[in-house]
Computed example of a mutant assay.
Amino acid sequence: MGKQEVNKHTWKMALSEQKERKPEDILRDFRASFFSMNRLASFNWTFLDNELQSNKSSEFISELLKQTCLHPLCGKFPPSVRFRRIFLSELIKREAAGCDPLDELYDALAQVVGVEETPLCHKSYFLPSGDAVSLLENVAVISEGTTGLVTWEAALYLAEWALENPQVFTGRSVLELGSGVGLTGITVCRSCSPVRFVFSDCHATVLEKLRENVRLNGLGGGKSPSVTVDQLDWTTAPEEQIRRIRPDTVIAADVVYDPEVAGSLADLLLKILKCSAAAEILICSTIRNPETYGGFKLRLEAAGLGHQVLTGPVGAVFPYNRLAPVELIKVFRVQDA
């Protein structure tokens, strides 16, 4: 069974399981999808419609509001104005067809109607512990000449993999390449007990947002783990900088999307392994363009690097599009294999 078929099978299984889920589970799912600004089409509206038809009561919508727009986290780290407006409009449409009007629903909508949209928003992702990783992101997928100001599927997948494989990070010094807004790294810091974590990127605006998100989630400031945010240019990074970091584990997510940077990344990974031979390198990619991704693997081979695809089920912790093919590989020097 191919990777895409596995993802489709997983998605169908998840939909099947939803049919037998309890109201409190559905409320938790709505909360997770709302705060991560997941696609509205992915919400379990069928359960809501059935609930309203069965009970003719607004009680479930009232509870739903408490878990979303009226949740304390929404006051502190709100999703975008447009997303909240559309979400509330969807609730009102269904409430009008199934039960009596709920004043607090219309009050919540009144708070976002007419409010000007900003280029920034917050997305929050709930960890198994119940705590949330909250990130300041750009609303637009591409802004200020970079795609690094939003969270991508491979970052979410790698974070889920890390939650299931904490031993790869526990007690180790970890370097993340192309950290973006920081979802994977912050999850590792909050849940996997590294002794040191180095976030890195090369884009000035991304680094600024990354530092803000690190602070937002209570990392740094002398707390454990030791956390730094470094500028790291793959084409010019000196060996001295790599030796200073001396990582035990290196991770990267959704960094293989541009053929022009594939060679620079391969050269950097070789440099890291020369400076820190025992480093464990994990690269996670959403395969949007098989030709580009295949080209990256050829550049690894040309640099004397091999790779192993890491397979196996990964628990669904965060809501995101699981139909997108994602691959996680471990990179190593061929002579060390």
Rank of each mutant, 00 (worst) to 15 (best):
P101D: 05
P101W: 08
L102M: 02
L102N: 08
D103V: 05
E104L: 09
E104K: 12
L105D: 01
L105A: 04
L105P: 06
L105S: 06
L105M: 05
D107V: 00
D107H: 04
A108T: 02
A108C: 04
L109F: 04
Q111M: 09
V112K: 02
V112C: 07
V113G: 01
G114T: 01
G114R: 04
G114D: 01
V115W: 04
V115K: 14
V115M: 06
E116W: 01
E117K: 10
E117I: 02
T118E: 12
P119A: 14
P119Y: 11
L120M: 11
L120C: 02
C121L: 07
C121I: 00
H122Q: 03
H122D: 05
H122Y: 15
S124N: 11
S124G: 14
Y125F: 15
Y125T: 07
Y125M: 10
P128D: 00
P128R: 00
G130R: 08
D131N: 12
D131C: 06
D131E: 15
A132P: 07
A132Y: 10
A132G: 04
S134P: 10
S134L: 07
L135C: 10
L136K: 15
E137G: 13
E137D: 09
E137F: 11
N138Y: 07
N138K: 15
N138W: 01
V139G: 07
V139C: 11
V139W: 04
A140Q: 15
A140W: 02
A140M: 14
V141D: 03
V141S: 08
I142M: 14
S143K: 14
S143Q: 13
E144D: 13
E144W: 08
G145T: 01
G145R: 02
G145E: 01
T146H: 06
T146Y: 04
T147K: 11
G148D: 09
G148F: 08
G148H: 07
G148Y: 07
G148I: 02
T151P: 09
W152F: 09
E153G: 04
A154L: 03
A154F: 05
